[in-house]
């Protein structure tokens, strides 16, 4: 069971309290109706599924209830960092981001 840091509670808490909510930084257009089929396809269906660093959303569903973003290495299953929803994708990553 992983420990996940909730950036709102500022605590490392067991995975049981959290739920994954899919890839992060998938931006919903403010003018969705005007989007081309291609752009909408990218928004709705296309996901990275990387081997290595993934930016993903989690919800502290059995805690504060907040959605936040996390950077995780899908190979080692290690969380490199978490940050609040709405914050920019971090430019540099701490620790063993290979």
């Amino acid at each position: 069971m992983l420990l996940i840091r909730c950036p709102y509670c500022e605590q490392d808490l067991p995975e049981l309290e959290f739920r994954n909510a899919g890839e992060a930084h998938v931006v919903r257009s403010g003018n969705l109706v005007a989007e081309s089929d291609e752009d909408f396809e990218r928004f709705l269906f296309i996901r990275e599924n990387p081997k290595g660093i993934i930016y993903e959303r989690w919800r502290h569903i059995h805690g504060c209830g907040r959605f936040f973003n996390a950077v995780r290495n899908t190979v080692s299953d290690k969380f490199l960092m978490t940050y609040k929803a709405g914050e920019k994708k971090p430019e540099s990553l701490p620790g063993d981001a290979k």
Partner: peptide, 13 residues
């Protein structure tokens, strides 16, 4: 409830 919270917190904050 989860979907409403999701949109409220992340898309329509």
């Amino acid at each position: 409830m989860n979907m409403m919270e999701d949109y409220l917190q992340t898309e329509f904050p």
